[in-house]
């Protein structure tokens, strides 16, 4: 571990692949890559955006309360609110599970999937908008929530389950409750997809590239970027569906009958999974897929 290891966040050096996303997103420019790992070069404001954006989930918050486990140590009600702590009225009893983040920047899209898996039917994300102290942290949260909405629709769920508001979120809770959503089916696929490294990278860099420009100093049009994001989401979802149905090793035809995906979709996905080192392929009359490692 380097001497200047950050104190406010913990980096799992076995997981870190030196992608540098945390450095790109940090609103206060206090991180730098040194010898391939992030180090702190200024004063951290503990917004949590690096942790929320880390593509391999190598970064977690040092304060237990703000780790994924800490944040999720709640009873999940029908509606779950992820909010900047500034938007929470002290002592108020909300008709929802309110998860108070230090800043909405800490919103890891995976957390939304996790609460859906645990029975939540709708999620409100409350940010401080342009008033965010860690701007563009709030905007990042909004992009992440949008990505989850898009993925829900890909899974055949209503994207309206996820609502982003600025400031007060009480109306949003009532509005969503009134819609009487069912539980999210296949929330585990959403969750696993949101752990996919490539998808996380594309989500994490979206705001920066669309609004500020990429490494070439060029901005990519929102709609155009969305296509890249949708492709990655599609793939990540299929990866998780297929992985779930491998049971140690399966023929393509078995995967097709288990998942309802088409042959084309399965073949496309497994070739990519092979390229990404997730599966091994063999052929014996037909393609047989088994998980790697």
């Amino acid at each position: 571990m380097p001497d200047s290891a950050p104190k406010t966040i913990s980096v799992d050096y076995n997981k870190c692949i030196s992608c540098g996303i945390c450095i790109y997103v940090c609103p206060h420019d206090v991180l730098e890559l040194k010898d391939g790992v992030p180090v702190m070069v200024g004063k951290c404001k503990v917004c949590g955006l690096c942790s929320a954006s880390c593509i391999t989930k190598a970064i977690s918050m040092t304060a237990k309360k703000f780790t994924d486990e800490g944040l999720l140590d709640v009873d999940v009600k029908d509606v779950v609110v992820f909010t900047c702590r500034r938007n929470v009225e002290k002592g108020k009893d909300y008709d929802a599970t309110v998860i108070s983040l230090l800043c909405s920047a800490r919103l890891d899209p995976y957390l939304i999937a996790e609460v859906f898996e645990r029975g939540a039917r709708a999620v409100v994300v409350s940010t401080c908008g342009s008033d965010c102290r860690n701007y563009p942290g709030s905007a990042e949260a909004k992009y992440k929530a949008e990505a989850v909405r898009m993925m829900l629709e890909k899974l055949g769920e209503d994207g309206e389950r996820v609502k982003v508001v600025e400031g007060n979120f009480e109306d949003a809770i009532n509005e969503l409750k009134a819609k009487n959503f069912d539980a999210v089916k296949n929330a585990d696929d959403l969750k696993n997809a949101l752990l996919n490294r490539d998808l996380r990278a594309i989500i994490a860099r979206m705001r920066g590239i669309v609004e500020d420009g990429n490494v070439y100093g060029e901005k990519i049009d929102y709609e155009q970027y969305l296509k890249v994001l949708e492709d990655a989401a599609d793939k990540a979802i299929k990866f998780s569906i297929i992985s779930k149905n491998l049971n140690g090793g399966a023929k393509v035809s078995e995967i097709v009958s288990r998942t309802g995906l088409t042959y084309r979709e399965v073949l496309d996905a497994i070739l990519e999974m092979k390229r990404k080192g997730l599966v091994e392929l063999e052929i014996d009359e037909e393609v047989v897929v088994s998980a790697k490692g």
Binding site: I17, S18, I21, Y24, A201, I202, V215, Y216, E218
Partner: peptide
């Protein structure tokens, strides 16, 4: 998309945008 990951992971510092 210009995300910058390749430059960071390249140990040889060969990527030049």
């Amino acid at each position: 998309i210009g995300c910058g990951i390749c430059q960071n992971v390249c140990v040889a510092k060969a990527i030049d945008y």
